[in-house]
Write a protein that binds this DNA or RNA. Structure first.
Length: 199
DNA sequence: GGGGAGATTATCT
DNA sequence: GATAATCTCCCCG
C-alpha cells in the first residue's frame, strides 16, 4: 500500500468537500502525538476565501503541489495552521482534534491548557503537535505524519466557515456532532426550538 | 514603499 | 466584548 497510511489511495485527489467531510474521525498524529479529527473546513481554488484564489505565491505554493501533502501557513503573524492539499489549488483546513495520544506532551506545549482546549482550534492544534513551517509541503504518508482511517461512521454536522468575510455563506465547515473539542459550537438551525424568535 | 486586512488566540474588562 | 501580538500578501501610490 503506497497511499497515505491506512487511507485509500488517492484519498485527497478528489473534490475537497468530500475530503473535508470524510476526514472527520480520521486519526492524525505527528511523531505519535495527536487524536481524531473533529473539525475541518474546505477551501477551493475558485473560492474567494481560499489563499489560492489569486494564484500562487511563496506562502501558498504547497496548495498547488501534489495531493496528500501538508500546507502550513502563519496566521495573524502568530499561529500556524495545518491544511491537507487536495486537487491543485484546494485544501482542507484542520481546525480541531480530540486528543488521544501524547496528552502530557501536548499539555506542556500548550502551557497547561485544559484537556478540552489542547487541540480545539487551528492554532492550538498546531502548537500541541509541534507543526510549523518545517512541515510545509511535507507528504502525509511519511514520518512524522501518521493518518489512520476512522473506525465508524461519524455523525457529521455542517455550517459556515469561521473567521472569513469572503464567501462567508458557504456551509463548508464540517464537524463531529457534539464533540467536546470543537473550536466553536455549530450554529443551530434557524427556527429550531433552541432559538425561538423573540424579536 | 506604506497601510490595512487576514482561514487566531490569550487575556483583560 | 475588546484588544494586543506582529507575519504575509495585496493594493495603491
Amino acid at each position: 500500500m503506497t497511499g497515505v497510511a491506512g487511507l485509500p489511495r488517492d484519498f485527497f485527489a478528489r473534490d475537497v468537500l468530500g475530503v473535508a467531510s470524510d476526514l472527520i474521525g480520521v486519526g492524525l498524529f505527528v511523531a505519535g502525538v495527536g487524536g481524531a479529527i473533529v473539525e475541518t473546513e474546505a477551501y477551493r481554488g475558485d473560492d474567494p476565501a481560499a489563499h489560492s484564489f489569486r494564484g500562487e505565491t511563496r506562502r501558498n505554493r504547497a496548495m498547488f503541489g501534489p495531493p496528500g501533502h501538508a500546507y502550513v501557513y502563519r496566521s495573524y503573524g502568530l499561529h500556524w495552521c495545518l491544511n491537507f492539499v487536495c486537487l491543485p489549488g484546494s485544501a482542507v483546513l484542520v481546525r480541531a482534534l480530540a486528543p488521544e495520544q501524547g496528552l502530557e506532551a501536548m499539555a506542556v506545549r500548550r502551557g497547561g491548557a485544559l484537556p478540552r482546549l489542547l487541540c480545539a482550534g487551528p492554532g492550538r492544534l498546531t502548537q500541541a503537535l509541534c507543526i510549523d513551517a518545517a512541515l510545509d509541503g511535507a507528504p502525509l504518508d511519511r514520518e512524522p505524519f501518521l493518518l489512520l482511517p476512522r473506525k465508524a461512521e461519524p455523525a457529521i454536522v455542517t455550517g459556515p466557515r469561521i473567521g472569513i468575510t469572503k464567501a462567508a455563506d458557504r456551509p463548508w465547515r464540517f464537524g463531529l456532532r457534539n464533540a467536546p473539542s470543537l473550536s466553536r459550537p455549530f450554529p443551530k438551525l434557524a427556527g429550531s426550538p433552541a432559538f425561538p424568535r423573540t424579536s
